[in-house]
């Protein structure tokens, strides 16, 4: 009699496409064992595909069900689910598309997937109490460039070479679904999740890079230098962050850290 690990090993092989490995240990009872195993194959695939569809509804609408299912099938072969939590099934999908669509007219799909995954993870991130702009006044204004900002865990910075926000909006349930002229140029998106739900904001490229650097731990001065954000735009960008309740803390100045 096969052991439990042997049974599960054969069953897994059957689910991956070799049902004959398992057939001998299954009672037929009016249906071929391979047909019985196929029900489990179909269930497992449906669960995987369903999870991917829920994470990437815009991409699915944009490419159509048939093509999306083909992508899902190929993606699953490369990136089988490694978690009991179905929400993570699609975490490698943007990278898979970047790899497989590179050099084709559809390479921008990877950027759409990156935006959708940013939305997916932003929506379930922790929400922390926010600071208001007045809190900046508590810092030594001479050394404010050395201060850092703690930002909401839900914040995601998504650069794109195409008008990705326009595509996302057009393919929402209430969107018209019409193709967007991708030659219109890049859009750079801040994604966050507030009390009212998901928020997507287009910002200039230097602003996105500035915020990304802050998020990575850079202080205000270093982020300004490295991002090419014009100094005259700093107040506007900081105002956006505070007004949108995206700032949750100030990192102390070096002399205050002791």
């Amino acid at each position: 009699m096969p052991s439990l690990p042997e049974i599960q090993s054969s069953f897994a092989a059957a689910l991956r496409g070799s049902p004959a490995s398992m057939a001998e240990d299954i009672n037929a009872d009016g249906l071929e064992p391979t047909d019985r195993l196929r029900i489990y194959q179909n269930n497992s695939r449906a669960m995987f595909d369903g999870a991917l569809e829920r994470s990437y509804p815009v991409l699915r609408r944009r490419v159509g069900d048939e093509y999306f299912q083909r992508l899902a099938h190929e993606y699953r072969a490369r990136h089988p689910s490694r978690s009991a939590d179905l929400h993570w099934v699609g975490q490698h999908f943007p990278d898979y598309l970047a790899d497989t669509q590179a050099g084709t007219p559809y390479e921008w799909l990877a950027e759409l997937a990156a935006l959708e995954w940013a939305c997916e993870t932003s929506l379930v991130a922790e929400s922390r109490p926010s600071l208001d702009l007045a809190s900046l006044a508590t810092l030594d204004q001479q050394a404010i460039g050395q201060a850092g900002l703690e930002l909401q865990p839900s914040l995601r910075c998504v650069p794109s070479s195409v008008p990705i926000l326009d595509v996302w909006r057009a393919n929402q349930p209430d969107g018209d679904g019409q193709p967007v002229d991708l030659s219109k140029g890049p859009q750079h998106i801040l994604v966050s999740c507030g009390a009212a739900g998901l928020e997507l904001r287009e910002v200039p490229a230097p602003a996105l890079e500035f915020i990304r650097l802050l998020q990575a731990g850079a202080n205000l001065g270093d982020a300004l230098d490295a991002s090419d954000l014009p100094a005259e735009s700093l107040v506007e960008v900081l105002g956006l962050l505070f007004k949108a309740d995206l700032v949750t803390g100030l990192r102390p100045l070096p002399e205050q850290a002791a």
Binding site: Q8, S9, F11, Y40, F48, S81
Partner: peptide
């Protein structure tokens, strides 16, 4: 099995 989750009740 072998690190792969089938996301079904087997």
């Amino acid at each position: 099995h072998d690190g792969e989750h089938f996301n079904d009740l087997l």
